[in-house]
Amino acid sequence: MCRLSVTNLAKRFGPRKVFSDISFQLETGDSLAVVGPNGSGKTTLLMTILNGYHPTRGEVTFYRGGRRLAESQVRTSSSLVAPYLNFYDDLTAEENLKFFASVTGRNVTGKEINSLLDRVGLEGRGMDLIRAYSSGMKQRLKYAVALLGRPEFLFLDEPTSSLDEHGKRIVFDMIEEYRKNGILVIATNEREEYSLASNLCRLDQ
């Protein structure tokens, strides 16, 4: 059983307040949708939770089996899928997957890589440089990378951005399957996406 605890979280960039006093607790099987107008701080909130930004105030704590996770453990047990994440264009999809597996201390076999690529609809394209991928294919690859280590905490920012109908279906099925066994946080304004979450956090501008 895992838990994500966010307490009185606040973030400012200089004099500009992005958000303040955000608190919530999520356990395995829980999901949260973060909604709000453009510029309300949805992405900043996700990045602050993932230690991409240091919070101005408040605390974020990840737990597994009642024990607080260290920074390095959080890195290997959480994943983010977002439009602003870029992978290495001059590496193939397989090389990208192997690299992110190695850098997080995981061993991954060729069979597992093929299975992940099949799952996101990129079968047969693993040896292509991702420079040649469309934005939708790159988005699918982000899901393959995110699911590499079966993360216990999954963060999705605009989860179906750039995806066609088939890609969206794959992602919705994946979310449906994942949310039973992990903690899911989705930042979105799409009704179809936030309706998948069991809790809602609304940010104001």
Binding site: L50, N51, G52, S72, R75, L80, Y84, L85, N86, F87, Y88, D89, F100, V103, T104
Partner: peptide, 16 residues
């Protein structure tokens, strides 16, 4: 410039 530093920050240990 390739915009890959964010994914590296989120996945890799700084000392690595």
């Amino acid at each position: 410039e390739a915009g890959t530093s964010l994914v590296l920050r989120l996945t890799a240990e700084p000392n690595a």
